[in-house]
Amino acid sequence: EVTIKANLIFANGSTQTAEFKGTFEKATSEAYAYADTLKKDNGEYTVDVADKGYTLNAKFAG
Rank of each mutant, 00 (worst) to 15 (best):
A58H: 08
A58S: 04
G43S: 02
I4G: 01
A33I: 08
T3L: 09
G62D: 08
A61Y: 13
F24R: 06
A6G: 03
V2N: 03
I9K: 07
T46L: 09
S14L: 13
S14I: 14
E1K: 09
S29Y: 12
I4S: 00
V47S: 05
S14N: 12
F24T: 03
T17I: 12
A27G: 02
L38E: 04
T15H: 10
G43C: 05
F60P: 04
Y45K: 00
F24C: 08
T37W: 12
V47Y: 04
D36Y: 03
G43D: 02
I9F: 13
I9D: 03
L38I: 05
F60M: 01
Q16S: 11
F10T: 03
D51G: 03
L8H: 02
N57M: 07
G62A: 07
A11W: 09
E30H: 07
F24A: 05
D41H: 11
K39W: 04
T23A: 08
N42E: 11
L56F: 10
A31D: 02
T28N: 05
G22K: 00
L56T: 03
F20L: 00
T3E: 05
K21G: 05
N42Y: 15
G62C: 10
F60R: 00
V2Q: 05
N42H: 15
T55L: 08
K59W: 15
S14E: 13
A11Y: 09
T46A: 08
S29Q: 14
F24M: 10
D48H: 13
A58R: 00
D51V: 01
L8Q: 01
T46D: 07
G53I: 01
T28V: 12
L38C: 09
L8T: 02
E30L: 14
V49I: 14
Y32G: 01
D41Y: 12
D41S: 11
K39P: 03
G53D: 06
T46M: 09
Y34R: 03
G22H: 00
T37V: 09
S14T: 14
T46F: 09
A61H: 14
E44Y: 09
A27M: 01
K40T: 11
E25C: 13
F60A: 02
A11M: 08
D41N: 10
F60W: 04
N7Y: 13
D36V: 04
T3I: 13
I4L: 05
Q16C: 15
D36P: 00
E1T: 12
A27P: 02
D51P: 00
A18R: 15
K40D: 10
F20P: 00
K26M: 11
K26C: 12
A6S: 05
F20H: 00
I9N: 06
E25W: 09
K59C: 13
K21D: 04
G43Y: 02
N12R: 00
E25L: 10
F10S: 03
T23Y: 07
F10Q: 02
A33K: 12
F10V: 01
D41L: 13
A58L: 15
E30A: 14
K40S: 10
K26N: 12
T46Q: 09
I9R: 06
Y34C: 06
G22C: 06
A27C: 06
K40E: 11
E44T: 10
E44W: 10
S14V: 14
E1P: 10
V2C: 11
A58Q: 05
V47L: 09
D36L: 05
T3M: 07
A18E: 09
T55R: 03
S14D: 13
A18S: 08
L8P: 01
E44D: 13
A18C: 15
T23R: 06
A6F: 14
Q16Y: 13
V47Q: 01
A11P: 14
A61M: 13
N57I: 14
D48F: 13
D48T: 15
D36W: 00
A33V: 06
G13T: 04
T28K: 07
F60I: 01
L38R: 06
A58M: 15
T28R: 08
D41R: 08
D51A: 02
A18F: 15
T15W: 11
Y45A: 03
E1L: 13
T55E: 06
A6D: 02
L56I: 15
T55H: 04
V49P: 05
T28E: 05
G62K: 06
N57C: 08
K59F: 15
G22A: 04
Q16N: 08
L56V: 08
Q16D: 08
A61V: 13
E1M: 14
T23E: 09
N7V: 14
N42Q: 12
E19Q: 10
T28I: 12
E19K: 08
I4A: 00
T37P: 00
D48M: 12
I4C: 04
G53A: 03
S14F: 13
L56K: 02
K52I: 06
S29K: 14
T3K: 07
K59P: 05
A35D: 02
E19Y: 15
I4H: 01
G43K: 01
A27R: 00
F60D: 03
Q16K: 11
L8V: 08
T37Q: 12
N7A: 05
K39I: 13
K5T: 15
Y34M: 06
G62Y: 07
K5H: 10
G22N: 05
K59S: 13
A58G: 04
K5P: 01
A18G: 04
K52F: 14
A27D: 02
T3C: 12
N12Y: 05
